[in-house]
């Protein structure tokens, strides 16, 4: 069986919030290393890969592989009943038809308990190859969100160009064009303000802003975001969490002209 206790419900609330507009029905694949999710959006342009490591829970018990088939709209309805600071416990049997969730207020004067019906979801899993990306950019997640939102007001796509002079986000729209260029920032006092650019070769790729803006819903999970870019492969947008857990989004580039 699965028993997983989170010190703060907000971790799961934020993760589900960040992906529920991209994917609807998906399996939480549980084993002794944690809870994983992999799902594509309906149009097969983006892929969500979530890993909540056992280390992010206390305690975490799961002695065999358990697939928890969830509708994220339904899960959201239940999670809305949890306060951010509540202790959240997930429980499921080995071949579950429901997921048990309890929310315990931190001063323990209230315990809420819910059982959510599960779905049988036959999901395709894609093998994501290990990639040495040509450019890796680490930046404040709020900055990335602002860039995507600002450019989306002008155009439906953005060209991300990483070179020795920095990283440039450029768009071309009906009303005109715009670009934002970022250079390396080293803020010793506040490392989360840093912009780090690791480049092995220049890259330039075009992506749909609609998806990028959607990924930015994960902003609350982490103060920093990492973009991994190589020519002609999907962009990886990564939000890292405590305990080695992560939420990753892959986005297929636009192709041809």
């Amino acid at each position: 069986m699965l028993e997983a206790r989170l010190e703060q419900a907000q971790l799961l609330k934020k993760v589900v919030d960040a992906i529920k507009d991209l994917v609807q029905d998906c399996n939480f694949d549980c084993n002794d290393s944690g809870i994983a999710l992999q799902a594509m959006d309906n149009s097969h342009v983006a892929l969500v890969s979530m890993m909540l490591k056992a280390e992010s829970f206390n305690p975490f018990r799961c002695d065999r592989n358990i697939a928890i088939g969830l509708n994220l709209v339904s899960l959201t309805k239940v999670l809305r009943a949890a306060q951010n600071e509540d202790i959240l416990t997930l429980k499921a049997e080995d071949a579950p038809d429901s997921l048990n969730l309890t929310f315990e207020s931190s001063d323990k004067d209230r315990i809420s308990e819910y059982d959510l019906k599960l779905m049988d979801i036959d999901q395709e899993h894609l093998g994501i190859p290990d990639t040495d990306y040509s450019a890796t950019i680490s930046m404040p997640s709020a900055e990335f969100k602002r860039i995507c939102t600002d450019l989306m007001a002008m155009s439906e796509s953005v060209t991300i160009e990483a070179g020795k002079d920095g990283i440039k986000f450029a768009c071309n729209g009906d009303i005109g064009n715009g670009s934002i260029t970022l250079r390396t920032v080293q803020d010793v006092e506040n490392k989360e303000n840093n912009i780090e650019i690791a480049l092995t070769e220049p890259v330039s790729l075009t992506f749909s802003l609609k998806y990028l803006v959607n990924f930015c819903k994960a902003q609350n999970l982490s103060k920093t975001v990492k973009l991994h870019i190589s020519n002609e492969v999907p962009l990886l947008v990564e939000y890292a969490m405590e305990g080695g857990s992560y939420l990753r989004f892959y986005l297929a580039p636009k192709i041809g002209d």
Binding site: M40, S43, H44, V45, A46, L47, E124, H125, L126, G127, I128, P129, S157, T206, S208, V233, P234, Y250, L251, A252, P253, K254, I255, G256, D257
Partner: peptide, 14 residues
């Protein structure tokens, strides 16, 4: 304009 790539053409089915 550019066409939108499909994620399944980059990642293989397991």
């Amino acid at each position: 304009g550019a066409g939108q790539g499909n994620i399944m053409s980059f990642f293989s089915k397991k």
